[in-house]
Computed example of a mutant assay.
Amino acid sequence: MKRIHALATSLLLAAGVAQAATVHGEDFESGSTPAGWSGAGTVQSTGSFASLGFGQQHLRVEGSNAAVLTLNNLGAHTAITLSFDLVLWDSIDGNPGGFPYGDMFQLRADNVTLIEQLFGNYGTNGSEGPGSTLVQNDANRGYGFWVDSARRVELTFAHTADTVRFEFQYPNSQGSSDESFGLDNLQVSITPVPEPGSWALLLGGLGLVGLASRRRG
């Protein structure tokens, strides 16, 4: 029986079913805006966040317009996985109501909203935000006080088009002197559609596994 299980595993690996392939990666260390990016955002120093794995440079977005990443010629696929580090600069409001008003981070892909979530570092109600915490120091949080905050975000969504357009935005940002955010360590992967030959190999091999199982039974 162990041999049958090993054969089935080998067939799955040989068929290469749903193996993710990286199609874009960017750490902004070149110091200039990379190809594919448009809209808001300039490459700037990460300052104190360099110690968190952000490197020396990142894309900083100051204002309410979106930073846009467009990728072409993705090839046949069934899903996209996007991961990136998100950092808050200055005093992005974290309250869901009252003053200051809460700021919503938005991520869209081809005009479909993937994330719309409160994430701030100023005010009495701290926001968890999307993804997992890199740093969020809640000590002495209150009006007139803000803290460094950063998240690591990863999500997978169904997608089949040959082109994808991502938009990263704080639509109600009050501007660079008061609020801004940054992106770094961004990676885009696709789940390719298996080749017809791979499916034939997999189905034929699983048939042999089933036959072997019945003979042993």
Rank of each mutant, 00 (worst) to 15 (best):
M1Q: 05
R3G: 01
H5L: 13
H5P: 00
L7E: 12
S10G: 08
S10D: 15
L11C: 02
L11P: 04
L13D: 10
A15G: 14
A21H: 12
V23A: 02
G25P: 01
G25E: 15
D27C: 05
D27V: 03
F28V: 04
F28C: 02
E29C: 01
E29K: 05
E29V: 03
S30E: 06
T33V: 15
T33W: 04
P34V: 05
A35V: 09
G36P: 02
G39R: 00
G39H: 02
G41R: 04
T46E: 07
A50Y: 07
S51C: 05
G55D: 05
Q57D: 07
Q57W: 01
Q57H: 12
R60W: 00
R60K: 11
E62D: 14
S64T: 02
A67S: 11
V68P: 02
V68L: 00
L71F: 00
L71Q: 01
A76W: 02
H77I: 07
H77A: 07
T78A: 08
I80H: 01
T81H: 05
T81A: 06
T81Q: 13
T81K: 12
L82G: 06
S83D: 14
F84I: 06
L86C: 07
L86T: 10
L88M: 11
D90I: 08
I92S: 07
P96Y: 11
G97Q: 06
G98K: 08
G102C: 07
D103K: 15
D103V: 07
M104E: 13
M104N: 12
M104W: 13
F105E: 01
Q106C: 04
R108S: 11
R108N: 08
A109F: 01
A109Q: 04
D110E: 02
N111Y: 09
V112D: 09
V112N: 13
I115N: 03
F119T: 08
G120I: 13
Y122I: 04
Y122V: 06
G123K: 09
G123C: 10
S127P: 06
P130M: 09
G131V: 10
S132D: 11
S132K: 08
V135I: 13
Q136V: 04
Q136T: 09
N137F: 09
D138Q: 09
A139R: 07
A139G: 02
R141S: 11
G142K: 09
G142V: 04
W146I: 00
W146F: 15
V147A: 13
V147C: 06
D148Y: 11
D148R: 11
S149L: 06
R151V: 02
R151D: 04
E154S: 14
L155N: 04
T160R: 14
A161F: 02
A161G: 06
D162E: 10
D162R: 03
R165M: 05
R165P: 00
F168D: 03
F168I: 02
Y170G: 07
Y170L: 15
Y170T: 07
N172H: 06
N172C: 00
S177P: 04
S177C: 01
D178A: 12
D178R: 12
S180L: 05
F181N: 05
F181R: 08
G182A: 11
L183S: 00
D184K: 06
N185W: 01
Q187F: 03
I190M: 08
E195Q: 14
P196L: 09
P196V: 13
W199I: 15
A200W: 09
L203F: 13
G205A: 03
G205D: 03
L208Y: 10
G210Q: 04
R214V: 13
R214G: 00
R214A: 08
G217Y: 11
